[in-house]
Simulated scan of single mutants.
Amino acid sequence: MKKIYVFGNGNISWDNFHRFYIEPIKECNLSECEFLIGDFTGTDTLMMEFLKDKTSNVTILSYRRETKIFCKYIQLPGGKLENNWRISNG
């Protein structure tokens, strides 16, 4: 399984996010990837939004209580409200 670490700019536009983060992984089979994501605003939360209906292979490297609440209630395909995302307290 490929590990993809996502972190970066806290002030990035949606267009630049797609250009620098989504385009490079577009050809990957997301079910064969594990994502490790921080819990900062910007790139980290945009990637959470992008992945929420695409894969459950996500680990959030979290320092904040709000992140745990957000990840617990992400809407997944088929109307599911729970997911298998993992949260690692740093």
Rank of each mutant, 00 (worst) to 15 (best):
residue 36 L to Q: 03
residue 53 D to K: 15
residue 24 P to A: 04
residue 80 K to E: 12
residue 59 T to V: 11
residue 68 K to Q: 04
residue 25 I to F: 05
residue 25 I to H: 02
residue 74 I to W: 00
residue 57 N to V: 00
residue 73 Y to W: 08
residue 78 G to Y: 11
residue 60 I to V: 14
residue 52 K to W: 00
residue 46 L to V: 07
residue 81 L to P: 00
residue 23 E to S: 07
residue 82 E to D: 13
residue 12 I to K: 12
residue 17 F to Y: 14
residue 11 N to G: 10
residue 7 F to P: 00
residue 56 S to Q: 14
residue 41 T to A: 09
residue 81 L to N: 11
residue 43 T to R: 10
residue 78 G to T: 14
residue 19 R to N: 10
residue 86 R to Q: 10
residue 46 L to Q: 14
residue 19 R to V: 00
residue 27 E to L: 07
residue 86 R to W: 00
residue 90 G to T: 09
residue 52 K to Q: 10
residue 45 T to P: 01
residue 85 W to R: 13
residue 86 R to Y: 00
residue 80 K to W: 07
residue 71 C to G: 08
residue 77 P to K: 14
residue 40 F to R: 09
residue 41 T to G: 07
residue 41 T to H: 10
residue 58 V to G: 07
residue 4 I to N: 07
residue 35 F to N: 02
residue 89 N to I: 01
residue 79 G to V: 09
residue 13 S to I: 09
residue 16 N to G: 14
residue 36 L to I: 12
residue 2 K to M: 11
residue 59 T to P: 02
residue 22 I to W: 08
residue 32 E to C: 13
residue 59 T to F: 01
residue 29 N to W: 04
residue 74 I to K: 13
residue 60 I to G: 08
residue 52 K to Y: 02
residue 62 S to W: 02
residue 9 N to R: 13
residue 33 C to N: 00
residue 10 G to V: 04
residue 49 E to Q: 13
residue 57 N to S: 12
residue 28 C to I: 12
residue 83 N to P: 01
residue 6 V to W: 11
residue 21 Y to P: 05
residue 5 Y to L: 14
residue 28 C to D: 15
residue 64 R to G: 06
residue 83 N to R: 02
residue 68 K to E: 05
residue 8 G to D: 09
residue 88 S to L: 13
residue 27 E to T: 12
residue 75 Q to M: 15
residue 3 K to G: 01
residue 21 Y to K: 05
residue 66 E to G: 08
residue 39 D to S: 08
residue 13 S to Q: 10
residue 57 N to C: 06
residue 55 T to S: 09
residue 34 E to S: 06
residue 26 K to F: 05
residue 51 L to M: 10
residue 78 G to S: 08
residue 11 N to L: 15
residue 23 E to K: 13
residue 71 C to H: 02
residue 65 R to Q: 07
residue 4 I to Q: 09
residue 63 Y to V: 12
residue 33 C to E: 01
residue 84 N to L: 05
residue 49 E to P: 01
residue 62 S to Y: 06
residue 45 T to Y: 05
residue 47 M to L: 04
residue 29 N to Y: 07
residue 76 L to G: 14
residue 6 V to N: 11
residue 78 G to Q: 10
residue 80 K to A: 12
residue 69 I to D: 13
residue 33 C to F: 00
residue 3 K to T: 03
residue 28 C to M: 15
residue 63 Y to Q: 14
residue 23 E to F: 03
residue 50 F to P: 01
residue 34 E to G: 01
residue 81 L to W: 04
residue 64 R to V: 04
residue 7 F to T: 14
residue 81 L to Y: 07
residue 54 K to C: 04
residue 71 C to Q: 10
residue 79 G to P: 08
residue 1 M to L: 04
residue 86 R to P: 01
residue 80 K to G: 12
residue 10 G to W: 05
residue 42 G to R: 02
residue 59 T to A: 05
residue 59 T to S: 08
residue 71 C to F: 01
residue 87 I to F: 01
residue 56 S to W: 06
residue 23 E to H: 09
residue 89 N to E: 09
residue 90 G to V: 11
residue 35 F to Y: 03
residue 87 I to C: 11
residue 83 N to T: 02
residue 3 K to E: 08
residue 41 T to L: 13
residue 10 G to H: 11
residue 17 F to M: 10
residue 49 E to W: 11
residue 62 S to K: 09
residue 24 P to C: 06
residue 1 M to N: 02
residue 61 L to T: 03
residue 54 K to S: 03
residue 11 N to F: 14
